[in-house]
Design a protein around this nucleic acid. Structure first.
Lengths: 188, 188
DNA sequence: AGTCGTATATACCAATCGGTATAGAGGATG
DNA sequence: CATCCTCTATACCGATTGGTATATACGACT
């Protein structure tokens, strides 16, 4: 079949469960039912495999966040839409979201952190843009937009990880309250 | 000098920067200025080294949280004290806190996750106890104390990681507002 | 038919992995 | 002096690591 897709899906499952460093290329290839040179034919290196994996999954989230972050003058509504985009994506791709959370918190000099952070900070910049545009309505933010974006994503990730561990179900209502909680932290 | 302490401090620095799996025992021993068998004499295995490291650092946090969590009938005050304990510890041991955050978010089948989670859930149980005791004053929590404890620690970790990345300085006031933000999420 | 590019397997590489067998150094105790 | 215990170094182990050289199978296109 499609060896490339099979390798990416095998890598996702293994990396998410045991970690990038702890899983060998050999095992990924075996699980995908191909030999090692096939992996190297498509991805060039183990790192290339992880990059391709992120390009496939994370860029979908990037786009959904980007379209949710279009700003038409209503900040609370836009934040709701951004949060909903994250939550919806986490519902569609829970295994990948787990991997992303792990790599985003990983040690800063690790391969995984660096790859995950590329997409992460791209999304962050998108969200910062919302706060910058909203300044005109909500007054001076004194350069705090970066911290706001980090906090919003941080709270979203907190709720999502609660959901991934089956401690919470994020309904539309919970999602709205989550954004409300973030806003409460901002305006004080 | 004290080879044991030197090994633990070398391991902390290396694991926090590049990750448990990516660092070999060889390199830890070299950085500590001793040979590999010395490491195995004290810790028995690579995993034993990580466990000893956690026993040394995390149990200090365990105790500080435990004493902060003594409940005398004032829930907001107790939560403030718990948050302050975390923040103070993160200020004292930023490198270890980084490592703990990384391992707590690591893939569930990884060695690091399992070791970090032992201490993590012990602290969680302590905090759950506070909410359970507070039920008498604050009404029925319908078994939500676990989620509350997770959320509180999650928000604390969010703020602490902002501080670790030099995006925020957690003053006493910020710490209090952080708890306030958590409470706001609870009562809605 | 012949040729070329993609995709795949067998078999291999040096290097590193976690871990250990053995022996010696050095202080304390008898 | 002899013994014992703690600690440490040299040198090694088999297994696995990421990565590759070579050869081939299979279409598609000329």
């Amino acid at each position: 079949m499609d060896s490339r897709a099979g390798l990416i899906s095998a890598a996702l499952a293994l990396f998410a469960r045991r970690g990038y460093d702890a899983v060998g290329v050999q095992e990924v290839a075996e699980r995908a039912g191909v030999a090692k040179p096939t992996l190297y034919h498509f991805f060039g290196s183990k790192q290339g495999l992880l990059e391709a994996l992120f390009d496939e999954y994370a860029s979908r989230l990037d786009k959904q966040v980007e379209s949710a972050a279009e700003y038409f003058g209503d900040l609370p509504l836009t934040l709701d839409r951004i949060a909903a985009a994250y939550v919806e994506f986490a519902r569609q791709e829970p295994v990948f979201y787990r991997l992303e959370l792990a790599l985003h918190s990983a040690p800063p000099d690790s391969i995984g952190y660096q790859i995950a952070t590329r997409h992460y900070s791209r999304r962050l910049a998108t969200i910062e843009g919302v706060f910058i545009k909203a300044v005109r309505q909500h007054g001076n933010m004194r350069g705090r937009h970066q911290r706001y974006a980090l906090s919003l994503v941080g709270i979203i990730n907190l709720y999502v990880s609660l959901q991934l561990n089956e401690r919470l179900i994020i309904t539309d209502r919970v999602c709205h309250e989550m954004v409300h909680q973030f806003s409460h932290g901002i305006y004080s």
